[in-house]
Amino acid sequence: MPETIMTRDDIFKKVQEVLEEALGVDEDEIALETSLTRDLEAESIDFLDIVFRLEKTFTSESAPFKVEQGELFPENLTENPEWVKDGKLTDEGMKMLEDRMPHVDFSGFQDDREVTKVAELITVNSIVEFVERKLTS
């Protein structure tokens, strides 16, 4: 039997379930614009938990859903001096992030560029977008 193609709304509902389980939050706290770290207080280990759950949720019989390290969330940004200078992302760093993470909206971040705030940009919508891109690629 052919698999049904998931709509964006289907993906959102599944992502909502993943976040409820991983972060112990209620459904009504999870909207598309909700930031994982700022609004839901997610910590680094929660990101790993979320990745494990996304893989489990979106793996189908015909296609495994595998998330590579650093694919969904940025890692070790500060270790590269070409990407971060004085706590702010360089032009190169911004470009790297935009290329590697098309699922994150960086439009309001161009002026700020504070590296410690990058995680705040990851919203529920980022995850929905990420899953949708992976499922259709």
């Binding site: 280990i45 790993l48 938990d49 990745v51 494990f52 893989e55 489990k56 390290q69």
Partner: peptide
């Protein structure tokens, strides 16, 4: 073991 990964495990 539910899931094992270079970063950790559940």
């Amino acid at each position: 073991i539910e899931r094992y990964d270079p970063l950790g495990a559940s």
